[in-house]
Design a protein around this nucleic acid. Structure first.
Lengths: 201, 201
DNA sequence: GACCGAGTATACAGATCTGTATAGCGTGCG
DNA sequence: CGCACGCTATACAGATCTGTATACTCGGTC
């Protein structure tokens, strides 16, 4: 039965839809959602506008699919890389910052797609904003889970702080405020985690 | 002579320009720059579109004025509040997070205008993006200056970390990932600054 | 009294926006 | 064969976009 409802979870796109989503992802991330027209997306994908509406129904739905696709790739990369660090260790928590730095090198030169997309929507209940906020809460819960696995007493509070450092890193990469922000974030996280572990004993 | 060139630094707007900038600030921040048309701005300000172009020349210039105006208000508020904390103290550094939390209550419910504006521009050399990046570097330098005044040896590195916590707080307020992020940021900053001061002696 | 600055009112140009409509082509499949 | 599906091609509707043009009003100031 798990195979039966899999197509609902992971949509299987037609070739045209695949190219549309790839083109939209590039354009939405680079220029912003409002700044890119559906004609531009269709042309970049090498399909007609009708195909776009047949597959996705609206520009809004395509934007949500863009956010979901980016997030799915990030989650897959993160979980795969995290598996290489010893479970339940502080090193595994710190590894998130190394992984983020590597990911940012090729994927996040303009910051976080979720933050940027949220900024373009006036309403927090807009489907695009809802998806963006969902992704952020998921990431904070990843930190909280890692902290609990590492046996930290105040896992939730430490997770909040780690999330601040992580978000700051994403933004700083996008703005170019200073170089290698995730290294600074890792350094700070190590100090915080050292203190948190120390207070346990 | 300082009075002579003051008008160049602080532009004196006509009444119409004043209302235009106020209306544009609200709309640009709420909906995003690309999502708001000049007709909407002019109507909200109660002036005609011609007045907008007579005063600002272009929508792009109005957007830059919007970012500059917001930043000027933030800087004024920050410097005024900072003056109430003892100079050269760690408390003064931590006060930035309290001040940010208060400011965010009434001004930053959708995150940082500079980050959000930058996200809408494809090119880092676009005037709007240039202004946004300038503001971020200024804020990092504020942290560095406060760290140096407090006598920290590794002021620049600590300033980077403080900037991450600050940026993370702004983003988290905008996304609503968790409550009261600047309190968590202050807590983390206190731990980092305690360690930095400890390593000095 | 002439002039100028700030503003109103209105219309327009030319482009671009999202979304729909109509007609047809080609391939795989039962 | 027949037929559904994914797609192309083209045209269009109706709205909205930035920016400009023309003509006018009103208040202060030299």
């Amino acid at each position: 039965m798990s195979v039966e409802n899999l197509p609902e979870m992971i949509p299987h796109y037609t070739p045209g839809a695949e190219r549309l989503l790839a083109a939209a992802s590039d354009l939405f991330y680079r220029d912003g959602i409002h700044a890119v027209g559906v004609d531009t997306i269709a042309a970049a994908a090498g399909v007609t506008k009708k195909t776009l509406y047949d597959r996705f129904g609206s520009k809004e739905a395509l934007a949500v699919a863009y956010l979901r696709g980016r997030d799915a790739r990030w989650r897959e990369y993160l979980e795969q890389e995290l598996a290489q660090a010893p479970a339940g260790s502080v090193e595994r928590i710190l590894a998130v910052f190394d992984i983020s730095a590597r990911w940012a090198l090729t994927n996040s030169d303009k910051g976080c797609s979720a933050i940027n997309a949220r900024a373009e929507m006036d309403d927090a209940t807009h489907p695009v904003a809802v998806e963006a906020i969902r992704q952020k809460k998921w990431m904070r819960d990843v930190f909280a889970g890692l902290c609990r696995e590492a046996g930290l007493a105040d896992a939730d509070r430490v997770a909040d702080i780690l999330m601040l450092l992580y978000e700051g890193g994403l933004v700083t990469v996008g703005m170019g405020t200073f170089a290698d922000p995730f290294a600074a974030g890792r350094e700070a996280a190590a100090a915080i985690l050292g203190a948190a572990r120390g207070s346990d004993h």
